[in-house]
Design a protein around this nucleic acid. Structure first.
Lengths: 245, 245
DNA sequence: CATGCAAAAGTGGTCGGACCACTTGGCCTG
DNA sequence: CAGGCCAAGTGGTCCGACCACTTTTGCATG
């Protein structure tokens, strides 16, 4: 008879562990039974238990500590951010345009809230990031520049006080993409324009002006969006796409 | 001396496989080398390779077919949506408020775009969903009602033509949460208010009026947000949440 | 008695091999 | 030629052993 659907053991084990969590048998921060104990208790091999744990670890639900046991995370959205960040990592150009469009929806709103809520020390730290990115020891390295840019925006979003928002935004912000943007600063004045955008955003934050902050953030994302669109569309030479190594 | 951090083998294997993808050695839809071959080629045990594959499978990057090989997915954002949906599955109430705040950022914008881009047949289908949710055979079941509500909003977001946006929105929309909302319709006229919100959104779409659509969607999310806030706040007992130890 | 450090117990991490379940494709039979 | 069967290849599961790390224990030392 039917029913015949044989559920893979590892996947079923994932469900059972998730059930243990949602049933409250183990709560956030608490420790899971031993791999070996789960193995006998669920009647599956230890390897399958490990694969199940690996799966939930990847999702940010569990955390394994070598020597100590396996623990349930706090289950905060930030814990599940890691999984989402893979998106921007393997995305193609068309996808990046979509990603930027979403960022253009959330980042202005987040910046507006930040303008109203940010603590003075937050504003100071953001200003410091800005100085470091713009001033003196401005590194030629696009990598470092991109990382600083990323930190700047994430710090602002963090001021909105919404961890879920921060997690989503982080997933939509790719370090590698930022590096690409800052690497393509041959364009006339593009880097300078980005810096001015940043300054304008910072000033709006200092002025506690949500609407100005919203507008500045929207203009900034839109600038990057249009730049990427210009980069992608005319792309006449897919030949150079390989790396010389 | 330093550097001393030894990277776990399985995790390093994950990186190597991801590198194979981003280097173009295997593209979307293509087949990965055998587990056994990867095992010898990367110099790690097959079990570790399996754990790495399991990890990437969980993220929606790979797909394993029993008997046939392991394949790279299309890498579309929708493929990586599954992982994100776990968030709404294990979230607490405070997190749900954060989630709604994010939805209030993206859903009005998405609805506005939909008003400008939606095809006539899309609008018709959305209208049909609306009728089914509101009219006659209105099921007492909160589950079915919540599912219809979910479908309504997702259909609208889909009209924006941004797959990444749809994936993010889906991750932020919990079926179980919607059921809770529709289950709590004892409140005076709350259900009716939600229906009127939906009608107003639909009318704005039909009128091809992006700003009206944006306002209607924002008002709708805000209504749910305030309802949840009222539900949650009076909650007086954080005592039950502690761990005994 | 207090202290510190070494040994031991416990746990996750890795490895290797074996076998099972499933898919695929080619061979054989009719 | 058509159809079904069989064998090779692949992922799925299991077992047992050992390694690396953490935590606890308990002994020796001051």
């Amino acid at each position: 008879m039917v029913d015949g659907v044989r559920t893979p053991v590892a996947q079923r084990t994932v469900e059972q562990i998730k059930a243990m969590i949602s049933d409250g048998e183990v709560g956030p921060g608490q420790r899971l039974p031993t791999e070996r104990e789960l193995s006998t208790r669920l009647g599956v091999s230890r390897g399958s238990v490990r694969e199940a744990i690996r799966s939930l670890t990847t999702l940010g639900v569990l955390e394994a500590r070598h020597g100590a046991g396996v623990y349930v995370t706090a289950l905060r959205p930030a814990d599940l951010l890691e999984a989402f960040s893979v998106l921007a990592e393997v995305s193609r150009d068309e996808t990046l345009l979509e990603v930027l469009q979403v960022r253009r929806m959330i980042e202005p709103a987040a910046t507006a809230i930040a303008a109203a809520r940010a603590a003075p020390e937050d504003l100071e730290r953001i200003g410091a990031l800005l100085d470091r990115m713009e001033d003196g020891a401005a590194p030629r390295e696009p990598a470092e520049h991109g990382a600083a840019d990323l930190g700047f925006h994430q710090a602002i979003v963090a001021c909105a006080g919404n961890a879920t928002l921060s997690a989503v935004h982080a997933g939509l912000s790719s370090r590698t993409f930022n590096e690409r943007v800052w690497a393509g600063h041959d364009e006339a004045g593009f880097t300078a324009a980005l810096h001015e955008d940043h300054r304008r955003i910072h000033e709006a934050l200092l002025a506690r002006d949500p609407e100005a902050a919203r507008a500045a953030a929207a203009a900034h994302v839109l600038r990057v969006e249009r730049w990427l669109g210009a980069q992608t569309r005319p792309g006449p030479d897919p030949a150079e796409r390989e790396r010389p190594r």
